[in-house]
Amino acid sequence: MEKRVVFRHRWLPYALLAPQLAITLVFFIWPAAQALWQSMLVQDAFGLSVRFVWFDNFTYLFGNREYLHSIRVTAVFSLGVALLGLVVALLLAAMADHAIRGAVVYKTLLIWPYAVAPAIAGVLWLFLFNPSVGIVAWWLQGIGIDWNHKISGNQAMLLVIIAAAWKQVSYNFLFFLAGMQAIPRSLIEAAAIDCAGPGKRFFTIVFPLLSPTTFFLIVVNIVYAFFDTFGIIHAVTRGGPAQATNIMVYKVFSDGFIGLNLGSSAAQSVVLMAIVVTLTVVQFRFVERRVQYG
């Protein structure tokens, strides 16, 4: 779609675009190009000489046990976050869609965690699950579960998944609720006349009609779990214990900034860029479809 009527000016459009383009070039395109270039370099231990090695860094990366482990950890983490966040949000949205009284109040009370920073969400849950002072850890002890996420890798993973999903539930809830409210009432009423109960109505009508929203949210949640959860990992577990929560984004940071392994960190950046590009393309293709049929 293009405008029929436009302005004519020799330099004005360039001047208007200049600030945005300058920032994009200096802080986005240039560093990304640098990452691509550095991913093909190897630096010696003292940072004195640099060698061009083509794709050796990548070959090394995908043969490296630690990196493969990090990929597995990321997969478990993002699936866990997406699944937990989506299921809870779907349940709450389905309920809120039924509630007539108090619907607005429930909505307000459920959406505010979106505003909490991931790192702060991590700290809140860290406090609840703290083995020595946390209230939830204490409850768990009461039913015979020994909680210590500083020792148990599985428990640490569970903790960061809960913290990340907690924050995302509000977002998913909003989109699910909007999707449900867009479903024509007449369909639901017709089903009710045919004696379908609320459960049957949900699974045969509401949920199938929600599928565009669900797919959209799956992509958004995976992107969130991949890239926006750095703060949670950094504030809560620092990738530990024993690498159990070392997701890929955190590994780029720790290898590059703490380990100072330039080539490997750059290669990891490039892998992540490839993942974002793929996810963005999927998201956009899907959004186009949603606009057409939705």
Binding site: A32, Q34, A35, F253, M273
Partner: peptide, 27 residues
């Protein structure tokens, strides 16, 4: 406006969507 390089500018801006800080930390 219609001007030469309009689509190039558009795509340059679009690309920033794909490059969160997290993937280009060191550079």
């Amino acid at each position: 406006f219609r001007f030469p390089g309009r689509m190039l500018a558009f795509w340059t801006i679009f690309i920033t969507l794909m490059l969160p800080v997290e993937v280009r930390i060191l550079p």
